[in-house]
Design a protein around this nucleic acid. Sequence first.
RNA 1: GGGCGCUUAGCUCAGCUGGCUAGAGCACCUCCGUUACAUGGAGGGGGUCGGGGGUUCGAGUCCCUCAGCGCCCACCA
Length: 875
Amino acid sequence: MGPEANTVRPMTVPDKPTLDGLEARWSAQWETDGTYRFDRRARRDQVFSIDTPPPTVSGSLHIGHIFSYTHTDTVARFRRMQGDVVFYPMGWDDNGLPTERRVQNYFGVRCDPSLPYDPDLEPPRSGGGASGDAVAVSRRNFVELCERLTAEDEQVFEDLWRRLGLSVDWSMTYATIDERARRASQRAFLRNLARGEAYAAEAPVLWDVDFQTAVAQAELEDRELPGAYHRIAFHRADGSEPVFIETTRPELLPACVALVAHPGDERYRPLFGTDVLTPLFGVRVPVLAHHLADPDKGTGMAMICTFGDTTDVTWWRELDLPVRAIVGRDGRIEQRPPVPLDTPDAEQAWAQLAGKTVRQAQRAIVELLVASGDLIGEPRAITHPVKFFEKGDRPLEIVASRQWYLRNGGRDINLRTQLLDRGRALAWHPGYMQARYDNWVEGLAGDWLISRQRFFGVPFPLWYPVAADGTVDLDNPITPDESQLPVDPASEAPEGYAEHQRGQAGGFVGDPDVMDTWATSSLTPQIATAWEDDPDLHARTFPMDLRPQAHDIIRTWLFSTVVRSHLEHGELPWTNAAISGWVLDPDRKKMSKSKGNVVVPLPLLEEYGADAVRYWAASGRPGTDTAADFGQMKIGRRLSIKLLNASKFVLGLAGSDPGADAVSHPLDRAMLAGLADVVDDATTAFDAYDYTRALERTESFFWSFCDDVVELVKGRAYGAFGDDAAASASAALRVALSTQLRLFAPFLPFVTEEVWSWWQDGSIHRASWPSAEPLRTIAGADADPMVLRVAADALGEVRKAKTAAKRSLRTDVDRAVMTGAPALMAALGLAQDDVREAGRIAELVLVDDPDAGPTINDLLVEVVLSPAESGSPPA
RNA sequence: GGGCGCUUAGCUCAGCUGGCUAGAGCACCUCCGUUACAUGGAGGGGGUCGGGGGUUCGAGUCCCUCAGCGCCCACCA
């Protein structure tokens, strides 16, 4: 039985147990004792290592954090009690756009990389509030403000996690922008570059005009937007019948480079290879054929622009068309037309568009087309999906630019197959989540775009030589030695150059971009295990055992992590992925700031207590979206209080522990045999990451333990049938209590620790997970679970009789007759003393009926209550 | 258009490889000052397991099909 139960230390069972103050007391104690410290001496096969999701510290705390982190914590605690050395670090995601945006609002600043560093800078405000004109600060000042704010945010998160009772080793934290993370990101990139897995290319990319950065496929989302089909006439040079197209982007007319129809489309076959003129501008463009053109869409003839959507990019590439870009990086139409315009009318038309936003330009060009008569009929309103950056506010544009890419199977079928194989080798919990991974990998449209035109992020560790004529040699980047990492090419000069040569002929320039935040987050297994920085730690913890995360970032975080590990280590970064669902509001709606239905965690912890909130969280099965349910938290609180009181009863029974040898009564043995089954079930469930089932089985046993077992044995335990009989009850209850406390410990760490401290040394969270065999040994091979079941049912029938008579449960029973099949009555006979005592039955008669059915439900109970006191209601 | 999940009591959900009369909690109703617990306890009512087929001695559970809800993915002119 785990730790020896009969310790000599005095018991300290309080008179009036309470949940108040447990969290502060025990979280402080755990910190002092290093209860959750990782033991660095452990070998890899003894370690269970967890790739904890680093929360975005600039994001707001909400109940979803509580939910999924509790799931992981229950597994961590289970593993620890099973004897694994748990490696459970915490990371902070303070890298990237969310932090930049929060810093801008919080301090009222914006970043202008051209400004010099001001060591004495004080931001105009702190704490957000009314927005005014943002003050421009240097990049270094901006990054400092980011660091300052994230440090505060991290503290808020850590306080919450401690309050919730996460068994994290708080001496092992990292941040995705800290030096170790930057070093890992740059090192991994340089190795990708050396192996040819990373490459730069000039190509059309999806571009957010507000953030002014490229975005990756994984960061896209579709939003339904109103739009309109505009039917536009393209004239032929010879003046014959015009060709009609339909477009939702008429403003891109000047960017048109061709028209296209399906090669099998009989209507247009004669036109293939001929030229037409764009309306308004009179630019000559060819009519071409391509299989992607859909004869059923619009007129069947499409306008190819550079670039209206990703299909345009495909056509442009495959039909080898020129670039006539008109939308600038700020989302406005360029000042200069993409091709020289021949006529004053065309120049006039262009002047109406130049400098306008895309929306304004659309209005203007529609007017022009109406005036010229080239817009046929009224625009036809539609709703259609439009690509957005998931954090953005305006539709993405497509602009050509030079970016860094990492091969992820999007353009390489062999690599893609290997990555799909990795996904199959990973143990998914629940298993069906693997479909999302497969779905995503199979749908990849290109390699992973990892460069961003932003300020707060990990810089690319690259410089480029500047030739004597001033041209920058982008094809031969200068790379640092790994020992120099991390580097900031914007403020450090490469080896062999001096800072004054920056931007000079014969000198160098730094790569201006930073990496995508996922380019760092995809390395959390490497960062957390101190890859290359601490080879000893890395060897003891990598590859990791578990990646817990939510389902919405399978395509980003999970997939990109697999990619990096595959490329760098040739193996999976972990063996298990536990996918948690989302928390929905009490009405099962998705929570969002804009809807104002976000549930904030701290007040819940204050009202119900951490154990109660954890209890609710643990009721959400892996992968399942779960509604915030305050009712469940109330039940969790009641369960915690019940644990206190039941424990107080069990421990208050005898002066000292009689020891497990004292267990002899058939009812006690039946109870322990049943508990052994619960232990097996809970263990099996936990092994499969089904913490919810483990909790359910434990809880259901515990309530019947309180309602039936404790009530049945109470009289005997108080000595109604002598010392030996009492000792058996007391001993069995203690064994059961110790077992149940440990089964509950992963879910209710505070209350179980509190009770444990009343009678045991050390932390329950370092105690051993219960096993079934010792319980079965105590119970004995011939223990019959039916003894408890039939006794509990008999007692229930007696209670029912009392309740039906509207009498107190203390009411004496003059006589009870119980009739059933012989086997049933034999089992009941073994516990009849307890039934008589618990039911306050004066005369209990058991009658064998050979014709009765064999089940509990076939038990017949007749009860004669003692007459009511005078003045009491009649029976 | 492709994929995944869900549909069991008024509500939130269990029900694992098919097998006692389909369960729990909340809510509701009735009752109980009881010496672990009134931050409690005992008992009760309430479900044709989304519809329709099929396999089987037997289906909430397996197969087919339809419907509704939710999510993921998709080249969205």
